[in-house]
């Protein structure tokens, strides 16, 4: 797995636009939650208590969030544990970004990794952009907001797989 810091201005495609839009909003509102927050249904809110060893406790999972898609409906009350149990290495690898954001950094990264889907013999490259920033939700301490979106390269891979599934089915 490779994690690279990326200037949000250099994030390409629709994913880049969505991340730039949310970042602009957070700067504009001084990172305070308001009901008109863009990308609300794609984001995840986590606890500010981020050790860097694990993904912090997850408070809100947007219905169209990438992680929800990846977890394929495993939707218990402790989402962070579900991720940890499914893929401990992934949990550890991505946890650092949450810890840095908890310290006040605005985290913008490109994450590249390979996954082996169930039943597949070969690995598939996966790449996504992510934003992690602090968000004030009314409590004395902020939470973290995380927007993770597949890059356009990943999106094309996804379409290719869908196409192939379609051809196989016929």
């Amino acid at each position: 797995m490779h994690i690279k810091r990326v200037d949000p201005a250099n994030m390409t495609g629709l994913a880049g636009q969505h991340i730039q839009e949310l970042d602009a909003y957070l700067r504009q509102t001084d990172s305070a939650f308001r009901p008109d927050m863009p990308q609300f249904h794609r984001v995840v809110f986590t606890s500010i208590k981020a050790s860097g060893d694990h993904i912090p406790q997850i408070g809100y999972v947007g219905k169209n969030s990438y992680i929800k898609e990846v977890m394929e409906g495993q939707f218990g009350s402790d989402f962070a544990s579900a991720i940890r149990n499914q893929d401990p290495q992934f949990d550890q690898a991505v946890a650092g970004g949450f810890a840095r954001a908890a310290q006040g950094d605005r985290v913008f990264e490109l994450v590249e990794m390979e996954v082996t889907p169930p039943g597949a013999l070969t690995n598939i490259p996966v790449s996504y952009y992510r934003l992690i920033e602090r968000l004030w939700l009314g409590a004395p301490q902020p939470v973290l907001v995380n927007l993770t979106l597949p890059t356009s390269a990943q999106f094309h891979e996804h379409l290719f797989l869908l196409d192939r599934a379609h051809l196989t089915a016929n």
Binding site: F45, T46, S47, Q57, S77, A139
Partner: peptide, 9 residues
């Protein structure tokens, strides 16, 4: 989940 998170905060 969000209420739990805010209460802990």
């Amino acid at each position: 989940r969000i209420v739990e998170l805010l209460r802990r905060a």
